[in-house]
């Protein structure tokens, strides 16, 4: 059965898509820009701002250049997948909804030791923080669970509940494997395709690019350019394209970090520059939704 979550990586994703779809989530598609986590997707960051409700779920490919290991580490890669669920306002039974999703994947909390371990989340670049947990399954962190309290410097009212599944890790468990690259992605007419078939070369080459070959002067230049453009777009009252430039600047920063091009001393300065942009975008986005009369608010809540 190709969509048995315990057999294939894609089956696992399909199970989550189906489950959250049944819970009334809009299934979104990944953002087509390089981001470090699903939180950066506008469907999380921007939609958690302001009073309008939002329920969505999506896979987000995530890039963390410094985590690259040339495809040689069994569970560290510079590119991996998150499954992101965003529920606003966070429903009362959000923990139960989450646990049912684990059951749908075939994880039985009466067999496995599922624990909620305090982990308060903070994103220095997004001016965001929240309270919540890492979810541990037999000692392994499989999900981050956060009640957003502030995003882009704005208080979250209502509060967004964010669930971020680490797909490869859960797949390791479900498929009984010890190495990301051994995970079965799918069964095709030509035989079994693994995660390694799809990504090992990519990890090798991208690690080389991230650590050795990314053009540092160009990255610095691009960072500055994105910052400038972001400010200009904000002046033109275009928070959405402005936000894309925040993401691009953030990725430039991550690459520069991987190239060791930013000293620890300067690091804070760059983080603050991105945060300042993110905060302005958040504010401007809020105002733009307000100007539209928060159209997704039902009248009785307005």
């Amino acid at each position: 059965m190709s969509n048995d979550p315990s057999q294939t990586f894609q089956g696992m994703i399909q199970t989550l898509e189906q489950y959250w779809s049944q819970q009334g989530c809009m299934i979104m598609q990944p953002l087509d820009l390089e981001v470090g986590a699903g939180t950066f997707h506008p469907a999380t960051f921007l939609r958690s701002i302001g009073p309008e409700p939002w329920h969505s779920a999506f896979v987000q490919p995530s890039r963390r250049p410094t985590d690259g290991r040339y495809g040689e580490n069994p569970n560290r890669t510079q590119h991996y997948y998150q499954y992101q669920v965003v529920l606003k306002p966070s429903p009362t039974n959000i923990q139960d909804l989450y646990l049912d999703s684990l059951r749908a994947l075939g994880i039985d909390p009466l067999t496995d030791d599922i624990r909620f371990v305090e982990d308060n989340w903070e994103s220095p670049t997004l001016g965001a923080w929240g309270l919540g947990w890492e979810i541990w399954q037999n000692g392994m962190e499989i999900t981050q669970f956060t009640y957003f309290q502030q995003v882009g410097g704005l208080p979250c009212k209502p509060v967004t509940g964010e669930l971020t599944y680490g797909l490869e890790r859960i797949a390791l468990y479900l498929q009984g494997k010890d190495n990301f690259f051994d995970l079965v992605w799918a069964h095709t007419p030509e035989g079994t395709m693994t995660y390694g078939d799809v990504f090992q070369q990519n990890e090798r080459e991208m690690s080389a690019y991230n650590f050795e070959h990314a053009d540092v002067p160009f990255l610095f230049q691009t960072f500055d350019h994105c910052e400038q453009q972001c400010k200009k777009l904000l002046e033109l009252n275009l928070p959405l394209p402005a936000y894309e430039h925040v993401l691009k600047a953030s990725h430039m920063f991550n690459l520069l970090d991987a190239r060791h091009a930013i000293s620890v001393t300067e690091r804070q300065g760059y983080l603050l520059r991105v945060r300042s942009l993110a905060k302005q975008v958040a504010q401007r986005y809020y105002e733009s939704r307000e100007a539209l009369g928060f159209p997704m608010l039902k009248t009785d809540n307005r």
Binding site: P109, L110, T111, D112, D113, R115, Q137, N138, G139
Partner: peptide, 18 residues
């Protein structure tokens, strides 16, 4: 652990792997 698991070996294996 926080559970009287119906399969403690699985919990142990998981922790060992991590």
């Amino acid at each position: 652990s926080n559970i009287e698991s119906n399969n403690p070996t699985q919990v142990i294996k998981g922790n060992e792997r991590v």
